[in-house]
Design a binder for these strands. Structure first.
Lengths: 358, 358
DNA sequence: ATGAAAGCGCTAACAG
DNA sequence: CTGTTAGCGCTTTCAT
């Protein structure tokens, strides 16, 4: 059944407590005893049982990551940030793909609670408030990464979507565009609405009143971007530029544009949002607003561990807002021409402390 | 502290054993008693403690997934397959990114053993045999997905890389190419070597002796593909086509080709391997050999659970070989012209039973 | 059909 | 510095 602490104790001629002490690095153990124990551990190839330990300590060294789909490059990058940081804190992460389905999400939350995870990071949030209060009452800390639930008071780290929308639109305006379309995401997603808000702000600042005709709703997917762009083009609205709420839709838009024999950026300029890996491909060169995806995950994890370790035990919840960054490539003109390969924008060490805390 | 089974028992006026029985669906419980227990559970919002349970049953309902980098779309898709299937088996998966570093991998294995996972799936394998025998002796089942360790006898599911290499090369040959280069991956990776083997077979069958000059080693990354292709082009070897060991290198190759003002496929035809999502982008349209990524993960997980559930307890290890599929797009000519969006090639239900078991 | 008791493998006071 | 004694919350015989 695998050796237990008892077997080690017996072999080393000490008590279980002593073994436990050396296991946990308790300084109050004679050097000699310690060595004997260590030798015994090695001899019988003992590996501590984290279940038994967790039962006592109420810490499992495991956190849950609730995500809509790990196959989505944006989420994968966030997940990587989370996992790296968890690893730094000697924790593991349990991956939960929900596909944005509330039921799956609720089921996963239950499972994670059963497993007594130390905390949970939400990337996708469809859950109603009741699950959250459940976590609250069990004192399981959680933080939102990338998205927030407006009604729920909790730690979160997000990119400044309004600013990002502003940057994208403003870039287009500076290039002389006036008729700029917005390919929105689903209207209930705050990120899309915030980017739209930034879009409007930039427009108004330039003395242009946002035209509802130029806004069309997509689904954050390539297909949706394609359809939305096609619809827009069919209506001959005199559009010369388009700001897509994310890169996938921008890709679909590009396709719709090319399909009609139009050129990018000469006939229509395109900006996306996210900077997913393929945006930088030589053949694509999508101008886009980059989100610090990895950092979002890493910082969220760091905040979570601060709660877990009790440092930030009962402090009010924090909201970290990260700055977006406009990446100018080819699809709006102003192509800078340098080759840029997928630079893993991961810090070799853990992420820096939160920036822009409010 | 959260309510325990004891609190439920007290409230329902029964013993802990009885509560445990209804929790585990034991039929030997009077209907009335059961209802009382269920009511009590609801009333105090009781959630079982999986740690305590696991300590007894020696089952955690958790498996480990060791992967080099979840950020890599290939691995993300495999991971998704694994997670979906684990979910079907009421299990969770612990995500472990190793970046291919043996030390990280070994450390994760230890951690997973401590957590007493029910099994492990290896996607990246750098580990030396000792870790594997360790798992063996602890009777922790494991399976390899996508790659194999030649010396280790274990369940595995892989794509037929030799066949894939053959298909890619043969496609090029049929289009009339004679001077076909191979952009290899690291020489110690069996997948790259097997694809090379298929490449040679196709060449020889066409009466062409493989020319060592046309083979150059890369690193499976875009940058490496770019460098390798550039080097090849510099040597003016009369190459008219290139088969890259994976899509990333193919992307780098495309870049190197375009940079020299050459056209694809007119001057140089390109085939990749994997069919990662961006290969199908309108702007890229990479002809490539598709691997059933999701199925690799799903089938590996299914095999793992068969071992865990003891059905396939002591049977000899199985090796499942999945067929690759040549996807013809634009980069070799013969472009079929249909739009193809990212079709999530996931079965809505669990993966079918293994195919091609040998 | 139900309860009592023992134990899974470890940690955590409390003595000494 | 080390051992003893209780549990942590659940499952599992074994009785009844």
């Amino acid at each position: 059944m695998g050796p237990t602490i008892r077997d080690v104790a017996r072999l080393a001629g000490v008590s279980k407590s002593t073994v436990s002490r050396v296991l946990n690095g308790d300084p109050n153990v004679a050097e000699e005893t310690r060595n004997a124990v260590i030798a015994a551990i090695k001899e019988i190839r003992y590996t501590p049982n984290a279940l038994a330990r967790g039962l006592n300590t109420r810490k499992t060294g495991t956190i849950g990551l609730i995500i809509s789909d790990i196959t989505n490059p944006f989420h994968a990058e966030v997940a990587r940030g989370v996992e790296d940081l968890a690893s730094d804190f000697d924790s593991n992460v349990i991956l939960c793909n929900t596909d944005g389905r509330p039921k799956k999400e609720a089921a996963y939350i239950d499972l994670l609670v059963e497993k007594r995870v130390d905390g949970i990071i939400f990337t996708s949030v469809k859950t109603d408030e009741s699950d959250m209060t459940n976590l609250r009452s069990r004192r399981i800390p959680f933080v939102f990464a990338g998205r927030t639930l407006p009604d729920v008071e909790a730690d979160s780290v997000v990119v400044d979507n309004i600013l990002g929308g502003f940057q994208a639109t403003n870039h287009l305006l500076r290039l002389g565009h006036q008729r700029i379309a917005y390919l929105a995401g689903p209207s209930h997603v705050s990120a899309s609405m915030d980017r739209y808000e930034g879009y409007c702000q930039a427009l108004r600042r330039a003395g242009i009143e946002p035209d509802p005709q130029l806004v069309i709703e997509g689904d954050f997917k390539q297909e949706g971007g394609y359809r939305a762009m096609s619809a827009l083009l069919d209506r001959s609205l005199g559009i010369t530029a388009v700001f897509a709420a994310n890169d996938y839709m921008a890709m679909g838009a590009l396709e719709a544009i090319y399909e009609r024999g139009l050129r990018v950026p000469e006939d229509i300029a395109v900006v996306g949002f996210d900077d997913i890996p393929f945006a930088r491909l030589h053949l694509v060169q999508l101008t886009t607003v980059a989100q610090p995806k990895y950092d979002i995950g890493a910082i969220a994890a760091r905040m979570l561990f601060e709660r877990i370790d009790g440092k930030a035990q009962d402090e009010p919840s924090r909201r970290v807002v990260l700055p977006p960054r406009l990446v100018i490539r080819r699809t709006c003109g102003e192509y800078l021409g340098q080759r840029d390969f997928a630079e893993p924008n991961r810090p070799s060490r853990a992420a820096e402390p939160p920036v822009g805390t409010t």
